[in-house]
Design a protein around this nucleic acid. Structure first.
Lengths: 230, 230
DNA sequence: GACGACAAAATCGTATACTGATTTTTGCCA
DNA sequence: TGGCAAAAATCAGTATACGATTTTGTCGTC
């Protein structure tokens, strides 16, 4: 999203942020400043500063042993979606109003890629296309504060690894909602976009909550087994 | 808002953040890590980290010569208020629903202090009371993500020095709006709070825009004089 | 084989030192 | 007095070093 940053800290920050957006770091991984510094061939400080920034922005949490991707509680998910529900329908509506032909074309490309990856079950490709779709309409949001806030709130969800799309019923509902949004964008109909996005938000919240709930239950079972073994 | 942080960086960050909230730093001031470090009797790094964090959060901007409070353009103000309009009415409504008696009492105290400081023209006291009032109802917002986001968006406006209240008409309108909000809070009426807060947002945006516009015009005149002298 | 004490390793937080870029000041000359 | 260039000061960025704390691993004992 940003240009080629001039200093090391920004470079590392951008790289890490991108990895997080792509879910390339799992919550069990540990990010350590010395390791990152070594991989870039630089000193600890810029790496450390980048990590601290990600912590302050809520993407990572500091542990006694390295930094880790922050995991969302069910309350976090509900809370984050309460904010998203307030912002995204409005922002998408303004994007529908101000959308230029080139952004429209890019949006359709991303949408087609979503359809295609979904049909062949290419989950990583689907996630990437999904991020593209979102970033594309966000480019039509003229208010940078709005766009940045939304971007941030969405990125929090990258830590919830979605096997969501594995369930065909969920995938179908997702695609249906997205199609309606896409169509409304093409029709330059802010009201329709607003309404569709609102519906989409509720469906997404439900999906994330159920995925995360299952994850947490599984983690608890594993935890109790571990404890028993001990 | 936070407890006594264990490390120096957090301490300095909190202190600086508080200074910013209180408008104790003007945009013409320069914040330099070595100075801050010296005043605390520590090394540069924690001070520097605190400053970098404030930059990443948008409160400060880095210059070639120290860090400075970020000044808002008119577009910034409109954009920030677009976000605030989406969030604050909703958050305040939820606060009205969930408000506890102790928070209610604190809110009334803050409100009374606003009335009093306003009547005697005590502007610094008024600003402080105003911050109190806001922070108090925010305490009743159970969604921490919502509360933090709102808090942040409001704090951006501390760089716009308000001689706003100097104009009696503006002050009267402000107090009227705030009274209505306060009354609606006491009545535990989420809908009324939502509506009143929405009105208040529009009035506030208008006020900030006009104040800032005047500031920018004045700055331009001074700038052109400086240039001529040169 | 389980448990506890102790040693070793890992990692964060902080301090200090160096460097290069940019701004400010100084001093010289017209 | 004004302009200009060199010198000095300032400050951000980066590197390296040290101490404190926590985790991990090992060894010996019960």
């Amino acid at each position: 999203m940003e240009g080629p940053s001039q200093n090391l800290m920004e470079t590392i920050y951008s790289d890490l942020r991108l990895s997080l957006q792509r879910s390339e770091v799992s919550p069990s991984d540990r990010l350590v400043d010395t390791e990152i510094a070594a991989s870039y061939g630089i000193s600890r400080m810029p790496a450390r500063e980048a990590l601290l920034r990600l912590v302050s922005e809520g993407y990572l949490v500091g542990t006694t042993r390295g930094f880790a991707v922050r995991e969302l509680s069910l309350e976090d998910i509900s809370g984050l979606f309460e904010v998203r529900r307030q912002l995204e329908p409005r922002a998408a509506a303004s994007a529908a109003r101000d959308m230029t032909p080139d952004i429209e074309a890019a949006l359709t490309m991303a949408f087609d890629r979503i359809e295609q990856t979904l049909s062949v079950g290419n989950i990583p490709g689907l996630l990437a296309a999904n991020v593209d779709f979102r970033n594309t309409w966000l480019r039509a949001v003229t208010n940078p504060h709005m766009a940045a806030t939304i971007s941030r709130f969405i990125d929090y969800f990258q830590s919830v690894r979605v096997g969501t799309f594995a369930a065909p019923a969920v995938a179908a509902r997702y695609f249906e909602g997205l199609s309606a949004i896409h169509k409304a964008f093409l029709a330059h109909d802010p009201l329709a976009v607003h309404d569709r996005m609102t519906l989409f938000m509720f469906a997404a919240e439900e999906a994330y909550l159920s995925v995360r709930k299952r994850q947490l239950e599984k983690a608890e079972v594993i935890g109790s087994i571990r404890k028993r073994r001990k």
